[in-house]
C-alpha cells in the first residue's frame, strides 16, 4: 500500500513544487476537516475498526502527496475517492492472504432473500432487541451488499451529490441512481421487519 502511494505521489507532474506553505495550508483547511467522513466511509466499507484506521491513515498520506493534483471535485469527494481506493487495496491484500475467508456479499453474490443478508444469527426482529436504534441502523447498513451500502453511505451520511458519488464510486450516474433506489428499498424492507409497527422507538 505504501509502495503504491509513493508511486502515486511521485507521479504528480508538479511534484517538483512539493507542497509549499500555501499548499500545506490549503490541505489543512480543505482536507483535514473531512477526517470523520473518511473514517466513516472506511469503517462502513471495511466493517473493521482497525482496518478502517489503517485505511484512513494511508488515504491521508496519499491525499497529501497528490494534493497538487486536486481539482474539480469537492474536497470531501476527492478525499473519499482516495479512501475508497485504499479500501480496495486493503481488500485485495486480504484476498491474497492465504487463510482469509471469503468475504460476504461481494458484488457477484446474490443471496436468496433480504433476510439471509443478516448473518451472525441476527434476524430483523432481534436486531433491535439487543441494540440501541443507532446501533441497529449501523448493523443493518453493514449487512447491505457492498455496492448498495457504499452509495447509501455516500448519499445519506456524506451528503454527496449523484455526480460526486459517481466519481467516488467510479460508476456512471445511472448506476448510482439504480443502486441508491435498490439500497433504499432494501433498507426500508429490512427496517420495517425489524420494527413491525413501522416506527422504531429507541
Amino acid at each position: 500500500m505504501a509502495e503504491l502511494s509513493a508511486r502515486h505521489g511521485h507521479a504528480a507532474p508538479v511534484a517538483d513544487r512539493g507542497l509549499d506553505a500555501a499548499g500545506a495550508a490549503r490541505f489543512d483547511a480543505l482536507i483535514l476537516p473531512h477526517l470523520d467522513a473518511a473514517y466513516n466511509l472506511a469503517r462502513y466499507l471495511s466493517r473493521d475498526p482497525d482496518a478502517a484506521q489503517d485505511i484512513v491513515q494511508e488515504a491521508f498520506l496519499r491525499a497529501y502527496r497528490s494534493f497538487a493534483d486536486f481539482r474539480g471535485l469537492s474536497p470531501r469527494a476527492w478525499l473519499l475517492a482516495i479512501v475508497r481506493n485504499c479500501h480496495a487495496t486493503w481488500r485485495l491484500q486480504l484476498r491474497r492472504a492465504p487463510q482469509s475467508a471469503p468475504l460476504p456479499h461481494a458484488e457477484e453474490e446474490a443471496p436468496d432473500d433480504a433476510a439471509s443478508l443478516l448473518v451472525d444469527g441476527d434476524t430483523p426482529e432481534t436486531l433491535l432487541l439487543r441494540r440501541t436504534e443507532a446501533e441497529a441502523v449501523r448493523a443493518l447498513l453493514e449487512h447491505l451488499p457492498e455496492p448498495l451500502r457504499e452509495v447509501l453511505v455516500l448519499r445519506e451520511l456524506d451528503e454527496l451529490s449523484y455526480r460526486e458519488i459517481a466519481e467516488v464510486a467510479a460508476v456512471p450516474v445511472g448506476t448510482v441512481m439504480s443502486r441508491l433506489s435498490r439500497a433504499r428499498r432494501l433498507f426500508a424492507d429490512l427496517w420495517s421487519r425489524a420494527t413491525p409497527d413501522g416506527e422504531a422507538t429507541p
Binding site: 470523520d36 473518511a38 473514517y39 484506521q53 443507532a134 441502523v137 447509501l152 445519506e156 451520511l157
Partner: peptide, 16 residues
C-alpha cells in the same frame, strides 16, 4: 424514513 433513521447522530462513525 430511511433518511430519517440514518440521520441519527450515532449512525455516523467518528474518527477515534
Amino acid at each position: 424514513l430511511v433518511r430519517r433513521v440514518m440521520s441519527q447522530d450515532d449512525v455516523r462513525w467518528r474518527a477515534p
